[in-house]
Design a protein around this nucleic acid. Sequence first.
DNA 1: TATGAATGAGGCTTCATTCAT
DNA 2: AATGAATGAAGCCTCATTCAT
Lengths: 222, 222, 222, 222
Amino acid sequence: MGIKERKNRERERRQQQIMVAAKRVFSQKGFGKATMEDIAREAELSPGTLYLYFKNKDELFSSLSLRILQYLQLRLEHVFRSDELLSPDRKVRALKDALYDVYEFDSLMLINLFHLQSSETLKNLSPKFLADMNDLSRKSLDIMANIFKEGVDAGIFIENHPVALADIFWGMFSGLVLWEESKKLISGDKNYLKETLEIAVDILVRGIHKDFNKSERGGGNG
Amino acid sequence: MGIKERKNRERERRQQQIMVAAKRVFSQKGFGKATMEDIAREAELSPGTLYLYFKNKDELFSSLSLRILQYLQLRLEHVFRSDELLSPDRKVRALKDALYDVYEFDSLMLINLFHLQSSETLKNLSPKFLADMNDLSRKSLDIMANIFKEGVDAGIFIENHPVALADIFWGMFSGLVLWEESKKLISGDKNYLKETLEIAVDILVRGIHKDFNKSERGGGNG
Amino acid sequence: MGIKERKNRERERRQQQIMVAAKRVFSQKGFGKATMEDIAREAELSPGTLYLYFKNKDELFSSLSLRILQYLQLRLEHVFRSDELLSPDRKVRALKDALYDVYEFDSLMLINLFHLQSSETLKNLSPKFLADMNDLSRKSLDIMANIFKEGVDAGIFIENHPVALADIFWGMFSGLVLWEESKKLISGDKNYLKETLEIAVDILVRGIHKDFNKSERGGGNG
Amino acid sequence: MGIKERKNRERERRQQQIMVAAKRVFSQKGFGKATMEDIAREAELSPGTLYLYFKNKDELFSSLSLRILQYLQLRLEHVFRSDELLSPDRKVRALKDALYDVYEFDSLMLINLFHLQSSETLKNLSPKFLADMNDLSRKSLDIMANIFKEGVDAGIFIENHPVALADIFWGMFSGLVLWEESKKLISGDKNYLKETLEIAVDILVRGIHKDFNKSERGGGNG
DNA sequence: TATGAATGAGGCTTCATTCAT
DNA sequence: AATGAATGAAGCCTCATTCAT
């Protein structure tokens, strides 16, 4: 058992090593142009070895998305748990900050994640993999949903469709990330994600408050 | 003169013919797996002919996005112009309906558009093409911004950053489209876009109203 | 007959027009990269028209070689005929000047000619074309041979293999042209063809003189 | 260390294998018509493998020229070194014999080399490759130049431009090779290269001798 | 477990040539 | 005679993946 354990750790180390290399290569060359050999070289391994740890290129790439999803879940749980004393309002803002953190932690992978969703790549993944992604997504969404539910239960947020709020929040976030990225690419503008997100959350919080006068404006990210 | 006119029409016909074929092939096989030969076969043309009308595969694919952007602009202009008598509230809801229309008109291409934005494909496009996309995007965004501006000018919407509202609206829309699509793919769920969008717009409208009590709920899409 | 004559002239005009265009394009783009469409555009004609005047691309290109061969013959005849009064020595030098003239007139086509010789392109040419080339080559060689023969007959040049002298002269010339061109390309050097040719002819003249003391050195080029 | 050595040998073996196949294919089909797949088939390898050993088609073809240049250098060094006791006259004739040997060793590649020089193919080659070619060419030319210099230093050859003599010799040789090849192709004649070369060298030796009476005639190739 | 040479299917694209107008 | 849109064969090359060592 100890040996098995050790083996497993070893295996995960290698996987991490490869994923780190993959991320680097893929940041430099873009998703399409990165080749398995590039990644192998960066990881100081041989191409064949990559296939001992990942079924194929798609799965290697997707594992990076999985990783950011894990990080996302971590951050969300933190918001939900350790900030138990915060008011629903503040929690929603903390949620936004958490998401923005994830963006800053690894914007490239986040965008990759959004692309992965709703792409044909999904169809190439192994069932286990898909299940993992599904799980992680669901968990994160659940946490978000719970945050809103708390507000509803506390009689602060309107009761209208509490379930959809998490979807809307997440959708808004991902949409804004992509859209800001796009504007940056097309017209070379600066990225205003942080500011736009702030405003968006202000509006959203007002919009779901029973009595919007009580909603605290611009609670910020301190 | 008449001849030149005729030639142009002929040329556009062919382009349309190819684009229709491209869309079909690409819906069946997915973006990555569709080949130029597939498209040529579907269009009942030879591969070489495709290159008389589109510089390369990327540009052919992107032209489909351009097309949906054009349709988007058309629909938005309609909302803005012919519905001059609507209240700002109703206009925002009409805006949502227009976007949903575009989604229904060609969801695949819309998703393609979102993917195209913020991808390395952009770098393969000819400058003219990029400029066209930029133009169209900007125009649509402007129209959306104007709708919100009318609300602000009328003293109904809060004055907070009127410019960003269009970005937020568009971001929210695109994010929700992708996210619903993703959920559909991962877990095989039904697509709740219409409903979620409705709720999202309710919240947004409440959120940007100076006095939210006056906001008309669920103005709907009849 | 007058009409036929006119037609013929017209046809030759067009051919010239195309050849001029071909030469220009082919100077800019290099032999391999020049396309029939490039040439058609340059000639302000359509691609199809080119095929009314030349059987195929090879023949169009070869016609350019034919043209320089014609020019070569012209120059050689001039040396042989109008310079009847020159001594054999001087005639050989005049011969060299004539060849150098041809080089200066159109170095690109001359090199093309050398490449054409001993290449598989030859096999694609129509029999008539090949015959023309053969004729022209032979005539030029004959003229050169005659110049040397005059020297032999006059008892000035050694009698050793008079026939081969023309071949040697021509071979030396073409080899030096290619070799100087090559050095220019590989190492970016200046082209010393003129000087090298001069020396080479000095040596050759000395070498074929019965009594080399009588050979006039450096008779030069006016 | 031993392993690295072995790998290198293995690599060179494969390169040789490919080059041999390339030469064969290319002799049969001509330069232009030979395809990479032809060569792969002949080498009993897959097309992709060719690209592990040669950057592209041009470089594979050029490597054949490199090879003949190496052989040329070898032969020239032999003339220069091991024949130290020969008179300058005899050395020049030995030089001719060496060049003719190279021609006989692989006439096709030699012609290829002449074509390569002064063609746009040069531009597709990697810098390293070009440098190699440049080096080899230069070395061979230097050796030739030295042979003539010895004659000058010995007071036997005229002092006129000793540097150019090698260029002239090489130019004459390459020109005659191409020209004889051409005549063979156009008119189906026999190839008289050997004889013509002999005469040419006779003339040249006479031409550069201070006192031509002392030049030994027809020293031949024994 | 790790290697990395070899594979080979298949993609994109070019361009000489044709032919209906 | 002239056009020029259409053809379609064919080439080069890439790269994910495998497998013998």
